[in-house]
């Protein structure tokens, strides 16, 4: 039998990443093995699960008991960031520590786009994943964080394939749709997922009809790396795990994103801004496992109380949209 003895190569979603992340820079990492397999591997373990935004230890416990596969620590949920305005930053480390002590599932936390010192602080706190997030106020209007230098893995948002592959080239080991956080309106998340799918189908068509030359031209158009684009076309999907985020408020929303091809779901304001957070959280987890089974989704959606009120994305001015942050 033939065996691929390259231990860093993987199968399925994160197969042999074209970028040499593990050898790129180890200086910034303190300990642990900084290989891309290990970073992307945790995201693969989260697949088919729900990651919930929480602002304190009490909410984190509710999320864990509901069956969340991880929690995301942030100082305010996106709906409140929208309402309150002002500058949104990384959480107080005290709150993050409290959440880490309260639960045994992975704890993620958000850092501002480009704010590599917030990322260093989160790594020092031992968070399991960093979300370099447009939901917080960007700290750099030119550069995203150079993520391959860190030992802790990163997840980043995208609206299309070019943006996703730019983040992966910077070292992101997991991608999510940006959607429109804090609205409870799933329309933007659907748009971003459909756009990524359409872009991948196009890259596959170009690779089949024009080969390498066509991929290079398309990479230039999308503003991304040609090797990563080719790899994506060959796989027929993003080379890392891709979750839905930004506007998921109901079990049916979550199952919709799964049926569109997402690997799992982030839920932000949708849970703790609703009438019965514990019941809704549990129902969304059930709907993500059984995303093709409408009977089960019907059962778990019944009697959940009030969903978050929501803001209609169609009535928002472009300047009010968080998804426009980052590039």
């Amino acid at each position: 039998m033939t065996i691929n003895d390259n231990g860093t190569a993987t199968n399925g979603t994160a197969s042999s990443i074209a970028i040499p992340t593990s050898s790129s820079n180890t200086a910034a990492t303190t300990n642990g093995n900084n290989s891309f397999t290990v970073k992307a591997g945790l995201a693969q373990m989260l697949k088919g699960g729900v990651i919930m935004d929480v602002v304190n230890a009490g909410q984190a416990r509710i999320a864990e008991e509901a069956g969340a596969c991880a929690v995301m620590a942030l100082e305010r949920v996106p709906a409140d960031i929208r309402k309150d305005g002002g500058v949104a930053r990384m959480s107080d480390p005290e709150l993050i520590k409290g959440i880490q002590e309260a639960v045994t599932i992975p704890v993620m936390a958000k850092a501002r786009i480009g704010h590599f010192v917030e990322c260093q602080v989160l790594e020092a706190l031992g968070v399991d994943y960093i979300d370099e997030s447009e939901v917080l106020t960007p700290a750099d209007d030119t550069y995203h964080v150079e993520k391959s230098n860190f030992g802790v893995p990163f997840v980043c948002g995208c609206r299309n394939l070019g943006e996703a592959l730019r983040r992966i080239a910077e070292g992101a080991a997991m991608i999510r749709t940006k959607g429109e956080a804090g609205t409870g309106d799933v329309v933007e998340a659907v748009k971003h997922m459909r756009t990524v799918n359409r872009d991948i189908a196009r890259a596959q068509g170009v690779l089949a009809s024009e080969g390498e030359v066509g991929i290079r031209a398309l990479a230039r158009e999308l503003g991304t790396d040609a090797a990563l684009l080719k790899q994506t076309a060959e796989l027929g999907r993003l080379p890392v795990v891709n979750f839905a985020a930004g506007g998921v408020a109901t079990p049916a929303d979550a199952a919709l994103m799964m049926q569109l091809g997402c690997d799992g779901v982030f839920v932000g304001s949708g849970i703790f801004k609703s009438g019965n957070a514990a019941a809704r959280a549990k129902a969304i987890v059930t709907a993500v496992t059984h995303y093709r089974d409408a009977k089960i989704i019907a059962e778990c959606s019944a009697g959940l109380g009030e969903a978050m009120v929501g803001i209609n994305c169609g009535s928002m001015a472009p300047s009010e949209k968080l998804a426009g942050r980052g590039w």
Binding site: G7, G32, N33, S35, L42, T104, G126, V127, V152
Partner: peptide, 15 residues
């Protein structure tokens, strides 16, 4: 013993 080695930063690959 769950999470024996610690958090994600302690995750690793070994022959």
């Amino acid at each position: 013993n769950r999470n024996h080695f610690g958090r994600q930063i302690e995750s690793f690959q070994a022959d």
